[in-house]
Simulated assay, not measured.
Amino acid sequence: MAVSQPLSENSVLPVIVMGVSGCGKTSVGERLANALNCRFIEGDSLHPPANIAKMSAGIPLSDEDRWPWLDLIGGLIGESVARGERVIVSCSALKKIYRDRLRAAAGGRLAFVFLEGSRAVFDQRMKARAGHFMPASLLDSQFATLEPPTGEPGVVTVDVDLPLAGIVEKALAGLQDLPAR
C-alpha cells in the first residue's frame, strides 16, 4: 500500500500510533510510514532493559518507569520536528498526561492514531504473537491504565476490527481530515 499522499499543511505533522498492547501499533505504524514516505520508530525498542525485564516478569510499569521512556520518544519527535521531517512512532501513550508530555515535546503539533478494540481481540493477538516481551497477562493492567483520547485534539480513532489495510486506510483518511494547526 504505497499511497504516499501529502497531508497539505500537516505534511510534517508527527504521528503516534497508540493503544494497548496487541492493538497493532507496529504493523499500522510501519504501513503508515511507508504510505507517507517517512521514518518509523518502534517505541517498544526504546524501553530501557529494566522496563523490559519488569514487563517480561508480568509486572506492570508505573508512571515512574514510563517517564524516561516517554521523554526519549518525545526527544526523538522533537528532533524530527526541528529538522522538518515527519515521523511515525508506535507508543502506547495510555494516559492523557503521557500524551500531553509528548505533545509538549513536539511543540504542540502532534497527531495520534488511537487503535481501539475489544479486550478479547487484543488478548487473542497477544497470545498469537511470538518473541514479544509483553505477556498477555498484562492486558488487564493496560486497559485499567488506558484513558481513551476522546475529545483530545489531533486524534484519529480507528477500530481494529478490520483487515490491516482497512485500518491503515482509515488512519490515512483521518489524518488527511485533521485541521491544519
Rank of each mutant, 00 (worst) to 15 (best):
L94I: 06
D140Q: 12
A106C: 10
R99V: 14
S137F: 06
A104W: 05
C91Y: 15
S141V: 08
A144N: 13
G84V: 10
V87N: 11
V113K: 01
S90L: 14
M134A: 03
A128S: 10
E85K: 15
A136W: 06
I88S: 11
E147F: 08
H132C: 05
P148N: 03
V81S: 10
L115Y: 00
G117P: 01
A82S: 13
H132Q: 09
F112D: 02
D100K: 14
P153R: 05
M134L: 15
K95Q: 14
G84T: 08
F133I: 08
E116A: 06
L138V: 11
A106E: 01
D100W: 02
A105H: 08
A82R: 12
K127Q: 14
A136L: 04
Q124M: 08
P148R: 07
D140L: 08
V87D: 09
G84H: 09
A82K: 11
S80H: 12
P153C: 09
V156N: 12
L94G: 02
V156G: 14
A106F: 05
L94C: 05
K96E: 15
F143Y: 12
R86S: 15
S137I: 02
E85T: 15
E116G: 01
S137H: 04
R125M: 02
R99Q: 12
A128W: 03
A120Y: 00
R129M: 07
Q142Y: 12
E147I: 05
G151F: 00
M126T: 03
A82E: 11
K95R: 15
P153S: 07
E85P: 02
G131A: 03
F133A: 09
E147Y: 13
K127P: 09
Q142A: 11
R83V: 03
A106D: 00
P135M: 04
G154E: 11
L110W: 01
P149L: 06
K95G: 06
D123A: 14
G154R: 13
